[in-house]
Design a protein around this nucleic acid. Structure first.
Lengths: 248, 248
DNA sequence: CCGGGGATTTGATCTCGATCAAGGTGAAAA
DNA sequence: TTTTCACCTTGATCGAGATCAAATCCCCGG
């Protein structure tokens, strides 16, 4: 833990997000140097597709700012979001030719990117990177499986409450703030994107948000700014057990 | 590929499944030796819970025979299966204290187990193991995300057709047979387990299976033995694009 | 061969969320 | 300022799948 902190401070990669730094955290200074020199930034505007499912992708990287979505679409247009990428999340698959899902910028998004081939070469030299990526991928897998419970078994109201509490939590952890009582944040997703994430229609999302507002559990300022009156009360609506589980 | 095949033959671990062998496939003979000496077998009867969510688990391993399920349950009893473990699938998380989900034997299950601490020590020495586990975990993550599309957006009939085609495919690949035309296999899951996997009730599962039978797309022998009359016809009912996608 | 009990099927009815259809809102362009 | 357009809300109705309630099947022990 101390080692991690030390390396965290040592790295020059100051403008890169926490989790990307964490990827490098057990590497040597040399390796950090190499990663650092490889990196480039690119910004995508809201609504832009960053990666199409099936594309050959030449880079890996992580989200510096903004929110991107991972989703898939059936031929008839039904769409399901399968993940949300927030600052510090890793993007891309080492060792894979083509992307399995669409990556779309929900807000303006800046990525810190590495050339895929160079990163993969570095992975072979530095086993710590593979171990760290394994750890991160296991976390993502657990999150995906938690989401399967939501999609398969939760009611519309529970789905909305769960989504709001997750976004609130991730937003708070981004600003390194504790979470309790009153919580405020901007929704990075449109009603339609929320529907795609939750396996609902946008009308149902709108109705459930209105219901939570009517019942005084949340307040809205505009369409996108949410004020959770009391976080614990919202949690009661999620259907989850009280302790909060694995979502961060 | 040749290297893999060679090592495949070299290892003494003959009774262990394909994918577990794959974990070792890029390791040295020494490392294989160590893994081989560590391994023990254990058999669980159908219905038995192998791991409870939250348990401290002291082993890792892979499924040798039988089918196990990964699932989570809400306090009020709603249950969602989040994965199915077939022969060759890896069980357990290196580097994790406690299990995130229940693992239950759907049929009689035999596991090949390694002591977790010993395996983790081996992982540090042999970077290839981490890389291989990362690859496998990425596959699982993609599968989980495909399943999210099913849970969030597919109709009951599409869900049933998808499940049958996945089980048929995995069963065929287990016996190293190609899949096309007429396909026969035993369902390893009860109607209730199928419902838990698909986010449906057992009555809906039963009705949809009956409908597929009535329409001549499948035949039943007993409750559990399925005969898919023409695999391509069943695929048409899944809602997936024609090429089959990532499911193996 | 017979009875018991879990697993499955089938039927009747209900309900939550989808669908169809107008409106409202607010920020940016004209 | 007015227009416009994308986004969101609200209302009315519908229908797929849930729920409640019996049968029926079948495997197993006696």
């Amino acid at each position: 833990m101390n080692v991690k902190a030390t390396l965290f401070v040592k790295t020059d990669c100051r403008d890169c997000p926490i989790r990307h730094r964490a990827v490098c955290s057990r590497s040597t200074a040399d390796e950090l140097e190499i990663l650092d020199r490889m990196k480039t930034y690119r910004t995508y505007e809201a609504g832009q597709t960053i990666i199409w499912a099936g594309d050959q992708v030449q880079f890996l990287g992580s989200v510096v700012s903004g929110v991107a979505t991972l989703s898939q679409t059936m031929e008839d247009g039904r769409r399901q979001m399968v993940g949300m990428l927030l600052p510090s999340d890793f993007v891309g698959r080492p060792g894979r030719e083509s992307a399995p899902f669409d990556v779309v910028a929900a807000t303006e998004v800046t990525l810190c990117r590495f050339q895929k081939s160079a990163f993969e070469r570095l992975m072979v030299q530095s086993p710590a990177i593979s171990r760290r990526l394994l750890e991160m991928t296991l976390d993502e897998l657990d999150s995906a499986r938690e989401w399967m419970l939501l999609l398969g078994r939760k009611t519309a109201r529970e789905k909305i409450a769960s989504l709001l509490s997750i976004i609130a939590r991730r937003d708070a952890s981004l600003h390194l703030q504790p979470i309790s009582g009153n919580v405020e944040f901007d929704l990075p997703l449109s009603r339609e994107a929320m529907a795609d994430y939750l396996g609902l229609t946008l009308e149902t999302v709108s109705r459930q948000v209105s219901a939570l507002k009517r019942e005084g559990i949340i307040e809205l300022q505009g369409k996108r700014h949410i004020n959770i009156i009391d976080f614990a009360t919202l949690l009661n609506e999620t259907g989850d057990d009280t302790d909060g589980g694995i979502w961060t």
